[in-house]
Simulated assay, not measured.
Amino acid sequence: MRIDLTGRTAIVTGSTGGIGLAIAKGLAACGALVVVNGRRQAAVDQAVQALSGVGAGSAVGFTGDLGTAEGCAALVAAHPSCDILINNLGIYGQKDFFETPDEEWARFFEINVMSGVRLSRAYMPGMKERDWGRVVFISSESAFNIPVEMIHYGFSKTAQVSIARGLAERMAGTGVTVNSVLPGPTLSEGLEDMLRPEQEKTGKSMEEVAAGFVMTHRPSSIIRRAASVEEVANMVVYLSSPQASATTGASVRVDGGVLSTI
C-alpha cells in the first residue's frame, strides 16, 4: 500500500515530541505539508528541522498554547485551512480522585478535550465544503480502562472518543471521516523520563524496563511490551489516507491488546 498525501495540509497539535512528532514525520513522509505545534519556539524549530528531508513532504511551525481558546484562534488565523487534523495535544498525570481539585479537572478538560473541539469546529466546515477531510483524536485505552490513579485523565480520553463518534455522524454522507485512536503504553519521551531512574538502577535496556512497567501496570497486555511511537503513528497515517475512506466513527486500538474485549 502506497499512501500519497501530496497536496494535503495536515495540522498535528502537540507535535514537538513523542507520538505527535512521529505522526508528523509519517504524514510528511507521505508528501503532506505538516504544521507542527508546540508551546516553545525552540522545540517547534527543532521539530521542523527533524522533518526536513523526510519523504516528499515539508513542514512549518506554529508556536502557541492550543490548550486555550486564544491559542486555537491564533492557529486558525495563521493557517485557516487544512485537510487533515490530528488532535494529539494532551497531558496526563497521576493524582488521587479525592485530592484532585476543580482546577485540575478544568485544566485537563481545556487541554485534552476543548483543544480538539475548537479546532474541529474551525476546520471541519471547510473539509465538508471540499468533500474531503480527515480528523483523528488521539485518545487512549484509558478511555475505556479508566486508571484509578488518574480518573480525571481517563474521563478526558473518554470524552474524546464520544466527540469523535458524534462528529463522524455529523459528517454522514460526506468525504470527511472522524476517528479516535487508542494507544496503550507507549515508549515516548515522557515514559522514558519516568522510567530512567529504574533503568539506571538495574542496568537494563529501556525496552526491558518498559516491558516490566507494562506487565506491572497493564498485565492484560498481549504484546507484553510498550509500543513504539512509530507503531502508533502508522495507524494514524493510515486513517489520514484516501485508503481509509470507509473507516469513520471508529475507536481504533493500538493498545497491544490491553483492553480485554473483542
Rank of each mutant, 00 (worst) to 15 (best):
I3C: 01
I3Y: 01
L5S: 03
G7Y: 12
T13D: 01
T16V: 11
G18E: 01
A22E: 04
A24D: 01
A28F: 04
V34H: 01
R39P: 12
R39K: 04
V44E: 00
Q46R: 05
Q46P: 03
A47W: 00
V48M: 12
S52T: 15
A56G: 06
S58N: 10
F62E: 09
D65A: 06
C72R: 00
A74F: 12
V76R: 07
L85Q: 00
L85P: 02
N88A: 02
Q94A: 14
K95W: 04
K95A: 12
F97I: 08
P101C: 05
I111K: 09
I111V: 09
N112Y: 00
V113E: 02
S115F: 02
S120P: 09
S120M: 08
A122Y: 12
M124W: 03
M124R: 05
P125Q: 09
R130I: 10
D131E: 15
G133E: 06
S139Y: 11
E141T: 13
E141R: 10
S142L: 01
P147K: 15
V148N: 08
E149A: 05
I151K: 03
I151L: 09
I151M: 06
H152W: 02
H152D: 02
F155K: 12
K157W: 03
A164L: 00
L167C: 03
L167I: 14
A168Q: 08
R170T: 08
M171C: 15
A172S: 09
G175E: 00
T177Y: 08
T177Q: 09
L182Y: 10
G184L: 15
G184R: 08
L187F: 02
E189N: 10
G190T: 14
E192Y: 07
P197Q: 01
E198I: 08
E198T: 15
K201R: 04
K201N: 05
T202V: 05
G203L: 12
S205H: 09
M206T: 14
M206Q: 08
M206N: 07
E207V: 15
V214Q: 09
M215H: 14
T216M: 08
S220K: 07
I222E: 04
I223T: 07
R225Y: 02
S228L: 14
E230R: 06
V232P: 02
M235N: 11
Y238H: 11
S240N: 07
Q243G: 10
A244M: 07
S245G: 10
A246L: 07
A246E: 01
G249A: 03
A250I: 14
S251V: 05
S251Y: 03
S251Q: 05
